[in-house]
């Protein structure tokens, strides 16, 4: 298969970027999208041109690193997969493919298609965990939990933090990401303990980072490679409002986490 690739090139965070067009021929239909880009880069390097920088790691859909906006959709045209799971058979021969990085104020471009997603890390650091003393291990069967809650928590836990939700959201909101973490932990007994403060601190950090506000268009869930549901956002809303009216936290008076 042959393709015309319109790719965003940007030298570094301070430079203006622009689109460059490349022609690529002889790509196998069963090549993955990234193998196709590797092929392009081989040609570029041989021609002494800087290869296209793009994020990738596991290349099997689980690490959340890959992040390309392909022909107007995060992770390309297929449902419930990441960029690395996309194959060239999803395109037609001679197609023009436009490739851009995730666009958001909170995800500044580092180089070419690579963006800085450390905002997500800071949100998780602000409360996306459970505070537990290590040491003795209680019998897991002493902590009862219904199967449906455990399954629901597992669904939420499958978020890989890729940021496609932010990328596709017209408001660049991180609600689905935050909601996935909140929903994952709050439904489990160990996570319930800090559910209130977790909701407050993660939303506070999310706002501080500069993500937009959720207006419930639902695009995030449609494009999520792990199909995280909007019901998790509803749960986050409930927890946040409950926490805001009833929790002990008063801003500017104390830190959210006492421990």
């Amino acid at each position: 298969m042959d393709f015309t690739l319109k790719i965003w090139r940007q030298k570094d965070a301070q430079s203006q970027g622009q689109f460059k067009t490349y022609q690529l021929t002889g790509i196998g239909a069963d090549n993955s999208f990234m193998e196709m880009l590797d092929e392009l880069n081989e040609h570029l390097i041989k021609n002494n041109e800087d290869p296209v920088h793009f994020d990738h790691d596991c290349r099997e859909g689980i690490c959340g690193t890959c992040s390309l906006y392909i022909n107007g959709r995060p992770h390309g045209p297929q449902k419930a997969i990441t960029t690395c799971q996309l194959h060239m058979r999803s395109f037609k021969d001679k197609d023009t493919i436009t490739i851009e990085p995730w666009r958001a104020q909170t995800f500044p471009v580092i180089r070419d298609l690579v963006v800085d997603r450390s905002a997500f890390d800071r949100i998780i650091q602000s409360g996306g965990y459970i505070s537990v003393n290590t040491g003795g291990v209680p019998d897991a069967n002493e902590t009862p939990i219904t199967t449906s809650k455990a399954n629901n928590a597992m669904d939420a836990a499958s978020c890989i933090g890729c940021g496609a939700c932010v990328a596709v959201c017209k408001n660049a909101s991180a609600m689905l990401f935050v909601a996935a973490k909140i929903s994952h932990l709050a439904q489990l007994p160990q996570g319930k303990v800090e559910a209130e403060s977790r909701a407050e601190s993660m939303v506070a950090q999310m706002d501080k980072e500069g993500f937009g506000l959720c207006t419930n268009t639902g695009a995030c869930s449609v494009e999520c490679p792990k199909e995280i549901s909007l019901t998790h956002i509803a749960r986050l809303n409930r927890q946040y409002y409950k926490a805001k009216q009833a929790s002990d936290y008063i801003p500017d008076k104390e830190e959210i986490h006492e421990g």
Partner: peptide, 14 residues
Amino acid sequence: NRRARPIQYALNKA
């Protein structure tokens, strides 16, 4: 929300 995305996508199939 506009401030959250200062640079728009060239192609966006919203």
